[in-house]
Simulated scan of single mutants.
Amino acid sequence: MKRLVLPWLLTAALAACNQTPPPAAQPKSLPPLPGPDPGTLADSSAPAALLAYGRQYPGSEVLITTRLGKIRVKLYDDTPIHRANFLLLTRKGVFNETMFNRVVKDFAVQGGQTTGARTIRLKRYRLPPEIRPTHFHRKGALGMARYDDEQNPGRLSSNTDFYFVVGEKLTPAQSRQMSGRLLTPAQLKAYATVGGVPSLDGQYTVFGEVIEGLDVVDRIANEPVESDKWPVDNIRMKVKVVK
């Protein structure tokens, strides 16, 4: 009886059928993002933790993307705690779950975390003020809100609620009357030609400014709002560090 010789392709196929398939590749877990967990920070621990983070993981510009366009923002070096906090929350993706939640035409547009029911809540810690005479509330300034003034004599900033100044153009006399500080000739000129809200000077920390997309801030400021100043159509955001 002749021995049956199988073609080599068929032999290989049969051999493959008898082999145990290799185990499926396990998805690789992403390494945790560097920096402190914002949920573990408190008023007392935040400044030191944020300063250390800012030194190790610096950054100077962020890009905010909305349905109305993009806003590119420069963060100031001389407000290191606020800058590091904004960089940390941006890289952790916190702002990507928020929206512009308070829009007041000719005044300011505010976004980030709130205590309202229509946005996520993050454990609140506060930042010590970093109010600088050179930073003022001209149009396009980036500042940090604060709350509970009666229980907040130190004027500690919110950790997540930021705002862009819109304001109006003002005469030097109006600016002097509204501002709580002595304004320089350059600042008076900016309020007259660009506009702003000098009544906020010396009260809140300004830690950055819009360098591209001021027209987008105007579009946000002109959105229809409900009685609580929340936009009728939500203005969600995506924020990333670009420099």
Rank of each mutant, 00 (worst) to 15 (best):
L75K: 08
I211S: 07
P22T: 06
P198R: 02
E168R: 15
R181P: 00
T79F: 12
E150K: 12
A145R: 06
L214F: 09
F136E: 06
R155P: 06
D77L: 13
F162L: 11
L214D: 05
L63V: 13
E223K: 14
V194T: 07
K238I: 04
T115A: 12
P198Q: 05
P185T: 07
V194S: 07
P58G: 05
E212A: 09
G69C: 05
A190P: 03
P32M: 02
I120A: 07
Q177W: 14
R219Q: 10
N85C: 10
R3F: 11
H82I: 06
A25N: 09
S29K: 09
F136R: 14
A12E: 05
A52H: 11
T115Y: 12
N152I: 04
P153N: 08
Q19D: 10
K169S: 05
K2Y: 04
E226F: 03
W230L: 13
N159Q: 07
S158R: 03
V5A: 12
N18T: 14
L88E: 02
K74H: 10
A190M: 09
A13D: 04
H135Y: 15
T160D: 14
K238Q: 11
P128Y: 02
G154R: 15
V94C: 11
D218I: 04
T115G: 14
Y204V: 02
N152Y: 10
P36H: 02
T90A: 01
A16N: 00
T171S: 13
P27R: 08
I131V: 13
A52Q: 14
A108Y: 04
L156K: 12
